[in-house]
Simulated scan of single mutants.
Amino acid sequence: MELYNENREYHAGDIVYIFYRNPHAQDVANIQAAAVVNNPENSNELALFLYETYYPLSSEMAIYSTEEEAEQAYHYYYGNDSEGTLE
């Protein structure tokens, strides 16, 4: 199983980086590592596994292959504060 996203190919087992909004404070976003896994609800799809939850992986998601790439995008979209650092 694989998914192409902006000329990248993802496979189950890959670690990627995404922006994750705090559900308790919607104005706070952080960079978070997530695992690409086989979707347990649909074996023909991939999913992101983050905080014990599966999120269907789609080409509409902003996914970064490295933490550095995610940090650059974070600073571009959110400014130069320190909120984007991986925790």
Rank of each mutant, 00 (worst) to 15 (best):
I63G: 03
A35F: 12
G84Q: 01
G13K: 01
Y54W: 11
E69W: 01
N38F: 00
A12H: 07
F19P: 01
S43I: 09
E41D: 12
E6H: 10
E41I: 07
Y55E: 03
E83D: 08
A29E: 12
E87F: 15
P40T: 00
N44S: 15
A35I: 02
E52C: 10
Y10F: 00
I31R: 05
G13C: 01
R21M: 12
Q26L: 14
V36R: 04
T85E: 05
Y17C: 07
E67W: 12
Y74N: 03
E67H: 10
E69K: 02
E83R: 10
T66M: 02
E68H: 14
D27Y: 11
A25S: 12
P40D: 01
M1G: 04
A34G: 10
E69A: 02
E87W: 14
S43C: 09
Q72K: 10
A70F: 00
Q32F: 14
T85P: 00
L86K: 06
E67G: 06
R8F: 14
Y78R: 02
A47T: 01
R21G: 14
A70E: 04
M1T: 01
Y10Q: 03
F49S: 08
P23M: 09
Y64W: 01
H24M: 14
N39M: 09
E9Q: 13
E52Q: 15
A73Y: 11
Y78T: 00
L48T: 08
A47D: 06
A34K: 04
G13T: 06
E45P: 05
N42T: 07
D14S: 04
S59R: 01
E87Y: 13
Y20T: 10
V28G: 06
